[in-house]
């Protein structure tokens, strides 16, 4: 097991180098002079030159790349070209917001998706199976934008229960320690803030969790059905093992392997890709940071954020692989 993890880790290094190269080149592939886009209609030649100089755009590409790597090695993600704000400090605040939202969404998705899939599989073609699979199909194809607005409309305007957006009510103050609102409010014993933070998670969590929930339900069902057809299940049944035990002890563990993959992939995707949800719910996370940065051609922010997201994704994949090995000891690196 230890050796397996080491080998997987070694494989991560070339991937990360590739990621830095990709993050660096990506921005140079977008058409248009970034200095001109940053300045817009009122650019003067002197100002254009000033910005190009500050962003280091006058150097040859490979020098720019080496400088980029050098800064990275020192743990410096640079400063925003627009606001001059240090990217590292910004990410320290943004990432917890995105992780909190992603965890809430995945929690919802797993709690509902996995049981729904299991029940559907064990009662194939039952009414429950039909209904949950139709819902899952709807969930997969739901436009998040529309769903988010509907959730806000129903949840906060019609029912008046949930706050429409943001992470915390404007009148609530919370001391920032980890920037995870849930953790911070527990550490400081601020129960009002805890309740408010949880309340704020419901609508965006639902919006973000719907698609993974549907995917997980469908995946669990099909994977479960496949396992249930295997010989060893038939043998177990022939031995007289109860249906409950067959499903939860014998079938589930094997059926979960592809589900874990999906959960891992979805988790990684949500961490970097919650742009729509974060926009609709005014959630100050990484998705909005990168979206705004791309729109403003804010090079340093785009590069660093892509890099951090991709790195996270790589490590989540690594975790998924390790979980495989744990779930099925036969999986080995070769």
């Amino acid at each position: 097991m230890g050796q397996y993890i080491l080998k997987r880790l070694a494989l991560v290094i070339p991937v990360l180098i590739g990621v830095t190269l990709f993050a660096f080149l990506l921005i140079h592939l977008i058409p248009g002079d970034p200095a001109r886009i940053i300045l817009g209609e009122r650019a003067t030649e002197a100002q254009l030159e000033q910005i190009r100089e500050r962003l280091g755009l006058n150097d040859p590409l490979y020098i720019q790349y080496l400088n980029f790597l050098k800064r990275l090695a020192q743990g410096d993600l640079g400063r925003s070209a627009i606001s001059n704000n240090p990217v590292t400090a910004e990410l320290k605040k943004r990432y917890p917001a995105t992780i909190e939202l992603t965890l809430a969404a995945m929690l919802l998705a797993i709690i509902v998706g996995v049981p729904a899939g299991i029940i559907s599989a064990s009662k194939q073609y039952s009414l429950f199976d039909h209904i949950s699979m139709v819902l899952a199909l709807l969930g997969v194809s739901m436009p998040i934008f529309w769903l988010g607005l509907m959730l806000i409309w129903v949840g906060s305007l019609v029912l008046g229960i949930f706050p429409p957006s943001g992470r915390l009510g404007v009148e609530i103050t919370l001391q920032s320690i980890t920037n995870f609102h849930i953790i911070d409010s527990i550490i400081t014993g601020n129960w009002v803030a805890l309740k408010d933070a949880l309340w704020h998670l419901v609508l965006p969590g639902l919006a973000l969790g719907t698609i993974p929930m549907a995917i997980i339900a469908r995946m669990t069902r099909s994977s479960m059905l496949e396992v249930l057809k295997q010989d060893y299940i038939r043998t177990a049944r022939a031995k007289g093992v109860s249906q409950r035990l067959v499903i939860y002890k014998h079938a589930l563990r094997n059926a979960l392997i592809p589900v874990v993959t999906v959960v891992g992939l979805q988790f990684g995707l949500l961490l970097g890709g919650a742009v729509l949800t974060e926009t609709i719910f005014s959630w100050p996370g990484v998705g909005r940071l990168i979206y705004d940065a791309i729109m403003a051609r804010d090079f340093p922010v785009v590069q660093s954020t892509i890099l951090v997201i991709a790195t996270t994704f790589v490590f989540i994949n690594l975790l998924v692989d390790i979980t495989y090995a744990y779930l099925d000891p036969r999986i080995k690196y070769n």
Binding site: L149, S156, L157, G160, P163, P164, S165, I280, S282
Partner: peptide
């Protein structure tokens, strides 16, 4: 006096209606 950024136009309008 509090300035809030709410990027989506429709969401911002719902918030105005909801009184937030």
């Amino acid at each position: 006096l509090i300035f809030r950024s709410i990027p989506d136009n429709s969401a911002r309008f719902i918030e105005l209606q909801a009184g937030t």
